[in-house]
């Protein structure tokens, strides 16, 4: 059984202890050893791990995660097979799935929420479900004890930003750049501005993601936020065949960067 509000409790405690938070993203079903990758990045210093349940039409994702999603789907990954494998992974940090709304809608809100809880997943991120459409899933997730992490964009108006902060569970996800996921050469200037706006609006952990690709960028982003989510930079290495060891090495380098800041 997962304790209630496990993600938020864990992340708050670590943040309050002066630690910068690191959440790597791994595409579920990518290669035969993806579950080992989840374990490896958890052991290498992740504070939580985000697992993508691939969708055929990922509009919030750039070429790297699109390719990973297509590869995972082509090899037969399904939401059910990914959740079943997640139930077996041996980690001591919370797990969050990231998927698109049609996967949740097709399964049924309550059924999807229940299956997350049953397979040991604490939270969910559904990037194409904005605050205005959150209701049905939001209620089902709350009732089941699943923490739904909401996203805020650089152009989100203040009033909406405040509402999202109030309604988000686990952490508040600041989308660092106006754009889709992908590796970028430098951190967008919108990252710092959004980080500051979010920190001023909420006491919940604030993490920035999308376009955070290197230890240097992670350090830069955490000047104005509690932590970072790193996706495409890790998935690109996985697509290149880095395996669990290479993934661990990369996450360890991010961890070291954040700890030495």
């Amino acid at each position: 059984m997962i304790p209630p509000r496990r993600i938020e409790t864990t992340l708050r405690a670590r943040r309050d202890a002066g630690h910068k938070l690191l959440v790597p993203y791994v595409t579920g079903g990518l290669g035969p050893d993806w579950a080992r990758v989840v374990e490896a990045v958890a052991a290498a210093g992740a504070d939580a791990v985000e697992i993508g349940i691939p969708f055929s039409d990922p509009v919030m994702d750039g070429p790297v995660i699109q390719a990973a999603s297509q590869q995972a789907l082509a090899s037969g990954a399904t939401p059910g097979s990914i959740l079943a494998e997640l139930a077996q992974v041996d980690v001591d940090v919370p797990l969050v799935v990231m998927t698109y709304y049609n996967i949740v809608f097709r399964a049924g809100h309550r059924r999807f929420a229940r299956s997350l809880v049953e397979q040991g997943v604490s939270g969910a991120i559904v990037p194409d479900l904005p605050l205005v459409e959150l209701d049905g899933w939001g209620r089902a997730a709350d009732d089941a004890g699943v923490e739904t992490v909401l996203l805020v964009a650089p152009n989100t108006p203040d009033a909406t930003l405040a509402e999202i902060c109030a309604r988000s569970h686990g952490w508040v996800y600041g989308v660092a750049v106006m754009g889709v996921t992908g590796v970028r050469a430098s951190l967008a200037s919108s990252a710092a501005v959004l980080g500051r706006r979010l920190k001023a609006a909420t006491d919940k952990p604030v993490l920035l993601g999308v376009g955070v690709s290197t230890p240097e960028q992670a350090v830069e982003a955490t000047a104005d936020a509690d932590g970072v989510i790193v996706g495409s930079a890790l998935v690109r290495r996985l697509l290149e065949g880095c395996g669990p060891d290479g993934a661990a090495e990369f996450v360890a380098s991010l961890r070291t960067g954040l700890d030495q800041r």
Binding site: Y101, D128, P130, L131, V132, L151, A153, T156, V175
Partner: peptide, 19 residues
């Protein structure tokens, strides 16, 4: 007001496109 025709329609997009 929320863009529905009966049960259908809506605005299911990333938050960045809502404004």
């Amino acid at each position: 007001a929320d863009g529905r025709f009966g049960d259908f329609g809506g605005r299911f997009l990333p938050e960045s496109l809502i404004p």
